[in-house]
Amino acid sequence: MREITSQQKVREVVEKYGGVCEKLVQILLELQEISGQNFISKEVALTVAEEMGLPLSKVYDVITFYSMFSVEPKGRHIIEVCKSAPCHVNRPQSVVNMFESALGIRMGETTPDKTFTLQHSSCFGACDISPAIKIGDEIYGNLTEDKVLEIINSYREGYRNVNRS
């Protein structure tokens, strides 16, 4: 199931921010969010460049600079495992292993049904419950095997009712 961000939609978002270059990062963040697959497609980038009167290279300079942007489609939910030092000393590898076996994919991969992408990330400010993971805006820590399964299922079913700490 692929959600195409139509040219019309891109125009709406650009318009919402007044079309000013200063808002390029904010516009791209919003477009990526509504892409459904956490990425900025070539078509979207082209339309943004056109609508804002920017060279395409300038748009890609921004997209490729920031780690939150992707040019490749990803899963609907991105599961990020922190690999910065404060989490590292709390052995995040066991968490990675739990997710890999529960999802049947390796680090960096996307599930065939395009629901989940498993990737590493730098510290996102959850070092108080490390090793921590982040899915969208939600953060989970102090993970056990049971809790990992519970979290995954909650996203499969579209619920978000897991205890987070």
Binding site: E22, V25, D61, V62, Y66, S67, M68, F69, S122
Partner: peptide
């Protein structure tokens, strides 16, 4: 949008103006 260097004050200003 995810870049540690944007905490540096001039990089932060660049980023606030919509650039890398």
């Amino acid at each position: 949008a995810g870049a540690y260097v944007c905490g540096e004050n001039s990089a932060l200003v660049e980023s606030s103006e919509g650039r890398a």
